[in-house]
């Protein structure tokens, strides 16, 4: 169980939750040369239903593939935030969208409220890249994988012709993380 880190992405179908999980897992497994397992759960709806993706990252073998004691939780809806925050371990990190999640539950963890969807609209002009901004912020705040690995993983997964767009989104996420860390310091 060497350095097992558990990350959960949650929100609703169509927000790119599962792709976020895949990209983070690829960043860890392929570009940071660690072990990684990604799993997901979803409802029958293609859009709008609850969506959840989990990534386990470790330097050693990963046996149980599901998260049980979460280190990092991203919640893009209030419902997801309320449902999954109790699974967050003490001292863990909670990242929410500031427009979608208005009430952050009480608990012994670090919470960051980020205007993810607004940044996607303002900085990139496309709401669809919100998941990439969220990934940038998550990695910027936690260092769970290297920034370089995340960039590589994003580039290999996004559709051809959208690389620049997604790199802009990723950078917006990194910058937001830096801004929050400066404010904390």
């Amino acid at each position: 169980m060497a350095n097992r880190i558990e990350v959960r992405f949650s929100g609703s179908g169509g927000q790119g939750i599962i792709l976020s999980g895949v990209i983070l897992a690829e960043a860890a497994a392929i570009y940071d040369n660690k072990n990684a397992v990604q799993s997901q759960s979803y409802g029958p709806e293609a859009r709008g239903g609850a969506s959840k993706a989990e990534v386990i990252i470790s330097d050693g073998d990963i046996d149980y593939p599901k998260a049980t004691n979460i280190d990092i939780l991203l919640a893009l809806t209030q419902v997801a935030c309320d449902k999954y925050t109790p699974d967050l371990k003490e001292g863990g990190v909670l990242i929410v969208d500031s427009q979608e999640v208005l009430a952050i539950p009480e608990g012994n963890f670090r919470a960051y409220s980020i205007p993810i969807f607004r940044l996607a609209q303002e900085k990139v002009g496309k709401r669809i890249v919100a998941n990439i901004i969220a990934l940038g912020a998550l990695v910027g705040l936690t260092g769970v994988v290297s920034r370089k690995a995340l960039e590589e993983a994003v580039l290999s997964r996004v559709p051809r012709g959208t690389e620049d767009l997604n790199l802009t989104a990723l950078r917006a996420g990194f910058e937001e993380a830096e801004r929050l860390q400066r404010a904390e310091a």
Binding site: A25, A29, V37, S39
Partner: peptide, 9 residues
């Protein structure tokens, strides 16, 4: 289903 849908290195 877990094995079918999980991604692993």
């Amino acid at each position: 289903e877990v094995l079918a849908h999980m991604r692993e290195k």
